[in-house]
Design a protein around this nucleic acid. Structure first.
Lengths: 190, 190, 190, 190
DNA sequence: GTGTAAGCGAGACGGTACGTCCTGTCTTCCT
DNA sequence: AGGAAGACAGGACGTACCGTCTCGCTTACAC
């Protein structure tokens, strides 16, 4: 089980820690997520965690970046509007129902009182996410569903903002109908 | 300075605790906000805090409800669109720049891993806030700026969602222009 | 069980700690004596220990001073030589066979690399012990068994030195015969 | 500095370790003597230490045995009493003022809670030391300064006991006068 | 006007988790 | 093959707060 050598860390230990952190977060919530507990669950020494991750949020961070991209990569069926609805529904599912989404919510929460974490979250996750969101709008422009003059960034805000709002703030359900109406209204007004 | 008597709690202690909690949250962030610290800053015994508030989030909660309503009560100039822009700008300022907003962000963050807190936040703050938000739309309906068939709740989501998204998630600035465009596009498409 | 109040510490906790430290030292030896272990055995929080004792040696110290004096207070039968033998045998037993003696040996050991501890051990234990040792010699002087010119401090060294040497260094048994011979030879040569 | 070869252990590394252990013991005391620190000071890998010495006390042990004998080998001037005083003064100096003495004190201290170490210390150091001590007494017997019936082992105890006692327990200075008186009194009473 | 009871500041208590340090084992590379 | 490097599991360290408790003081109503 020991890997110890001069050329780098144990991949086994790294994955065990990420998995344990993910599991414990989902099981017990962020408040009860402790480095001590992660170490025990992962069968790893605390020092090994502190050696590679400055804090427990960094562990979650790594877990998030690893998982998120694949879960919410937009489809491309040739019908931008339909793809948009599909993609936003996937995003809603990610935010409300997936393990990675739980990690995202926890990190966003921490980011409220930790500007550095918030910044890192934007750089390493949100930027990529917005790029994926934009792709669909760019295809819509190409198809003529949106005017070339449209401010796509603002439109992204108008599309995903209500989803994040419902998922993180009000907790209202995000139905397909809600998404469909949101998309059609937003595209129409652009 | 002791109040000690058989008929009720010390208002002085209550206010000192709320103020201390608010200050320490803004100064040090939520992570470093401790009951121990609040007690010391407020010149109050820990037991006095535990006697009246189940947890430190309850202290913040009381501080929020006290402050929030007055900061974001919508105006009524007779011009619903203009009022809407004014109100949403005030909301944006509340979310990003006020002390009460910092408390709101902290509680929303905690609510991500504490469903009971999230529910309470909705009941005691968000519901009232959405009611205030809706009032403007109802006036717009009366003025004929919106069709009577419009689903006002959904429109509220589309209006405030992007603001919360920028304030809590991306951290992008919320300019008057952004709000103005958001309002006109949303009303147009409804 | 809790005492917590403004008028000082819990005597119960104090005694539990002293007893646990004493027991664990005898059972496992000094090397395996940990604050963690003492706290657990005593049913006390680590912080309670750190609050009242700067280090684990201080705990042992308190245990020693409490116990030692009564174990090795010299007798007075009117026969100084006999009393001397009795007393030195008691001292030998203390050094080699008693719990308090185990504590003494451990602290003396620590004192080898901690001058402050060594000094404190002298002040608070050894000085008293030597005073008790001297009393017998003073009585011997009064009886005429020793010349008034005798340097009693030096004689104490010659009497107890070999006992400490056997007990702490060579581990040889200290028989009554050895003590008897030591006393008679030492008194004769003084 | 690398020796890495196929022909047995590096004498260079061995000496560096012994020297480093000795230095660090004198500089920082036993409590702060760590295998990690010795390895770093000696420019040697931890594993090299663990390969050759079971524990850090074994390192000190080897250092002691190497140094001690030569420091306290008794002289032979033909005057046993004078030699005895000289030798005991050398012993006192060894115990209180030499580097090897510091190692001896540290090991004796450890021996208080480690019977195996204590036994080894007796076998490999103390036995030899006592033999050297005895030689002088045997010469004294040959010269007629001591009766042939004298129990030399007991006399050794009476001579060196007070020295160890002062050096390790009370910390009193060991003056030439003290030693001279001790020797004359002891020989007289034998 | 005295007695009683509730709220108060204070702070010790048993605990949990923190982040650091060192141990002794192990693996890999270099010589 | 020996030595250097260094990652690993384990576990004690001393610290910070947690939430509970008991204390002795200070009121102010109730008798």
């Amino acid at each position: 089980m020991h890997r110890g050598n001069r050329h780098g860390r144990s991949e086994q230990a790294r994955l065990a820690v990420l998995q344990a952190a993910d599991d414990l977060l989902v099981e017990n919530g962020f408040a009860r997520l402790t480095v001590e507990g992660i170490a025990q669950r992962a069968g790893v020494a605390k020092q090994t965690i502190y050696r590679w991750w400055p804090s427990k949020t960094d562990i979650l961070f790594e877990a998030l970046v690893t998982d998120a991209a694949e879960e919410i990569t937009p489809p491309d069926t040739g019908d931008p509007t339909r793809d948009l609805v599909t993609h936003l529904c996937a995003l809603a599912r990610f935010l409300t129902a997936s393990d990675a989404g739980a990690v995202f919510r926890a990190l966003t929460a921490e980011g409220q009182h930790d500007p550095a974490l918030a910044a890192r979250l934007r750089e390493e996750h949100l930027t990529g996410q917005r790029t994926r969101d934009r792709q669909l709008l760019e295809r819509a422009v190409q198809r003529g569903d949106l005017p070339v003059t449209a401010d796509l960034d603002t439109i992204v805000d108008r599309l995903v903002g209500p989803l994040y709002y419902r998922a993180l703030i009000t907790g209202q359900e995000i139905t397909t109908e809600f998404v469909t109406d949101l998309v059609s209204a937003t595209l129409k007004s652009a």
